[in-house]
Computed example of a mutant assay.
Amino acid sequence: MLLAGMMAALTKWPRLLVAGDPVTEAQANDILIRSNPRYLVSNDRSWTALVAREYGIPLDPHGGLDWKAAAEVFERLGVLHLNHLANHRIMSPTIVGPHGWCAWDGRIGCSTYNIGKWPTREDVQEDLTAIAAAWPFLRMDVQLVTDEGDGDLAAMWQVADGHAAFVEPGDPLPIHDLTDTAIMLRLFTPGAERGVTLNRLRQALAQVRTKKAHASNEDPPQTSAERDHA
């Protein structure tokens, strides 16, 4: 009967709840570069251009990313293909702003945003299996609550030692909603779609590129600063 209580539909936008052990900032760098969506979208055109430059991705005539070039860069960086559990910590045009289950300071957890739309348990299991395999040091509980957090606890996983197990849910993790003040600040504060400093992003990208280059016995690509002084 392990799964009997968890067969109700997850609904259109279930709330994602995560609580886990913190990771180091170096580990967070790897997680946040490689679990970012395989796109970069923001209404902040200046930030989009700065981030694209750090990634080495050219812009299209409309100021967005050249998607073919972007796909190649994301592949070289080892960015995962995730259905619903990407971290949006570099930029995000959504009402909640930059968000995710991992923070740049290494904290693991979230409770203020929903995933969707219409996710399935299989989709989420696929994401968590990939996440656990990529970062076997992660230890976290993951829950989904139906109806944008107002419904029932419908699914729970435990991630540890490189595996993601679908388990009988325990007590629901705390849910926090953004205040009206926080939403207004997000909507009207310049730079609110930016989730990281340019220096930290540059450091994280260099770390991931160096790790990938060492794994393939290649020289890491030049950073933007190195290109400027070449």
Rank of each mutant, 00 (worst) to 15 (best):
G149P: 02
A70R: 04
L198E: 04
P14T: 11
L32N: 10
V51P: 00
I31L: 10
V145S: 07
L153F: 02
Q207P: 13
T181P: 11
V159I: 09
H99D: 05
T129A: 09
G106Y: 11
K117W: 09
G149I: 04
D30S: 12
L144V: 01
R194V: 12
P37L: 09
M140W: 03
Q207W: 15
I131N: 00
V79A: 11
Q207T: 10
S216P: 02
A213L: 02
N29W: 01
R227D: 06
A164D: 03
R53S: 05
L82G: 08
I90D: 07
I175K: 15
H214P: 13
H99T: 09
W101E: 12
P37Q: 09
G116P: 01
Q27A: 05
A155M: 09
A26R: 05
D66Y: 15
A192G: 03
V41H: 13
A9C: 08
D105Q: 13
P61A: 00
A86Q: 06
V142G: 03
L40E: 15
A165T: 05
G5R: 13
H163C: 05
G170Q: 00
H176A: 07
L201C: 03
S46N: 06
V159Y: 07
L138D: 04
K212D: 10
P119C: 06
T120D: 00
V159H: 03
Q203C: 01
G64N: 06
W118K: 01
T129Y: 15
